[in-house]
Nucleic acid binder design. Sequence first.
DNA 1: ATAAAAAGATTACAACTGTTATGATAACGT
DNA 2: ACGTTATCATAACAGTTGTAATCTTTTTAT
Lengths: 209, 209
Amino acid sequence: MGRPKDPKRVEARRAEVADATLRSIAKHGLEGASLRTIACEAGFTTGTLAYYFRNKKEILLFAGHTVMRQVITRIAEHLAVCPSLESLERALLAELPIAEDKRLGWQVWLTFTAQVPSDNDFRKEHEERYAELRSVVRHCFEVEAKAGNLAKGVEGILEVDRILGLFDGLGLHALLEPRLYPPAHQRQLVQLAIRKLSTQQRNNTGASQ
Amino acid sequence: MGRPKDPKRVEARRAEVADATLRSIAKHGLEGASLRTIACEAGFTTGTLAYYFRNKKEILLFAGHTVMRQVITRIAEHLAVCPSLESLERALLAELPIAEDKRLGWQVWLTFTAQVPSDNDFRKEHEERYAELRSVVRHCFEVEAKAGNLAKGVEGILEVDRILGLFDGLGLHALLEPRLYPPAHQRQLVQLAIRKLSTQQRNNTGASQ
DNA sequence: ATAAAAAGATTACAACTGTTATGATAACGT
DNA sequence: ACGTTATCATAACAGTTGTAATCTTTTTAT
């Protein structure tokens, strides 16, 4: 008798398809990511895709989900060991569109984000991921507030939105015009924004990595 | 003899098509904006579009161009009469995704922005518009700096990127999750970010409009 | 070894896409 | 009034899309 669906293999194949989807989007945008190009990129045919996914949208949602989840997981792990503003700084710096793989991540983030206003499934996915992200960062501020490490007049709840707003906006601009936002410039902007909130001022303008 | 192309009429028709394009995108995203739906939305047929535009991309670029140009023109006019941080604050507040028409503008901005990484024509358009925007805001900072109205330790060049990054990031988040970013919250964030830069602190948390 | 089910390829299909050729109409100058 | 040309609609084109039915090949349990 044939075995029941091997979950290991299914998971692996779905991951391969997701990866191929990301590569397709990175090359020619969402328009260039048809089922055929995705399948070709993965070394399969459309029939294989149909076997592991119900339809194209499920593929896109899965691909987007994995990308966002990986980013947030990395940030959360940084902040889990030590939920401080310093950790937050390091976590965000590591995700800026500097290295080529990070730039690719930002690009697919952008294309998926652009689907949110006109597609309820993408909207739901977005809301869930960002709820996680906000929760992690908010916890970070709460800990610092209790320790009395926040400068006078900084409202934690406000600052979460401000930092995340700046982070996404800066990342977006850096993705779109890398020449105007070289790595050092990106880092400097994030560092300045975070360090202004802390009582203990650090001065290193950051040549890490 | 038939008259030569009436530029007034041509301009008007192209504007109608651009408007119809924006409405189509607002309804079902870029995927839902085919030449037929655009034409139908404008009360025309595809033949009419072909008469006023060479191809679809030209339509999209024109539509995107007009939207961005209008936004930047409004901001520039605000800052032309009085290039101060206070004017900048008012100008940016007026463009936040609060009213429904502004939200629509942000949505098309997002869809066009998402094309930038994979399309050189969109990239060029984006670079030109943001060069204008940065120039206007930078001039605003220069004037304030000469007047000695900038708080200690604020580097104008850095702050331009920081304000614009925060503005786009915040606008994006507010567009995607309006319930988490009610009008007062959006305004508060922008106001706080700008007023921290000035020597003369104002305190109104903003109930304008 | 063999039956059975899973995994994947091939192919077909209907719908839709952007583009364009052609036809009809309306506006204008003479 | 006429002819010319701008304007716009109709319709056809070839290509692509997502989807799904069908067929072949592995893989596995007995």
